[in-house]
C-alpha cells in the first residue's frame, strides 16, 4: 500500500497532533481544519479520512464515555500513532525540500 499522504490526510493528522487526545474527535478536528483553511469540512469526510488512516496504522481510536449532549452516544477519540508521526515528519521534509528556492513563494 502506498505511504503517500494526501493533502487532506495531512491536515487531519496535523489537527490531531495539535489537539489533546481527550479533545480530538470529529467535531474538534473539523473545527481545527476549518479555522486553518477557512473552508467548512463535512464531518463524514473527516471520519472517512480517519478510518482510512486508521486502516493504514497512522491513527488509533477509542470510544469515550457517552453523554446526554450527544444523545447517549459516546465520542470516538483519535490519536496519531508513532508510525503516523513518522509519516508526517517525512511529508514535512519532502514539502520543505520542494518549496525551497521557489521565487514566487519567497516573501518580499
Amino acid at each position: 500500500m502506498s505511504d503517500h499522504l494526501g493533502s487532506f490526510d495531512l491536515l487531519v493528522l496535523l489537527s490531531l497532533l495539535r489537539l489533546e487526545e481527550e479533545q480530538a474527535y470529529g467535531v474538534t478536528i473539523s473545527t481545527e481544519i476549518q479555522q486553518a483553511t477557512g473552508r467548512a469540512v463535512a464531518l463524514a469526510t473527516v471520519y472517512a479520512t480517519l478510518e482510512r488512516l486508521e486502516d493504514r496504522g497512522l491513527v488509533s481510536s477509542r470510544l469515550g464515555e457517552s453523554t446526554a449532549q450527544r444523545g447517549g452516544r459516546a465520542k470516538r477519540h483519535f490519536r496519531v500513532t508513532t508510525n503516523g508521526v513518522r509519516q508526517v515528519r517525512e511529508a514535512k521534509a519532502a514539502l520543505l525540500k520542494m518549496w525551497r528556492g521557489i521565487r514566487e513563494l519567497q516573501e518580499a
Binding site: 474527535y25 470529529g26 467535531v27 463535512a42 464531518l43 463524514a44 469526510t45 471520519y47 472517512a48 478510518e51 481510536s61 470510544l63 457517552s66 449532549q69 450527544r70 444523545g71 452516544r73 459516546a74 465520542k75 470516538r76
Partner: peptide, 29 residues
C-alpha cells in the same frame, strides 16, 4: 463510522446547527 459520527451530529445540532444542516451532513455521510 456511525458510533462517533451520529453523536457528533447530535452534539452540533444541540449547539445550534439547523435541521437542514443535519440532513446535508446525513446525505454526505
Amino acid at each position: 463510522t456511525s458510533a462517533g459520527l451520529i453523536g457528533d451530529l447530535v452534539e452540533e445540532h444541540k449547539n445550534g446547527r439547523s435541521r437542514a444542516w443535519y440532513w446535508q451532513q446525513t446525505i454526505m455521510a
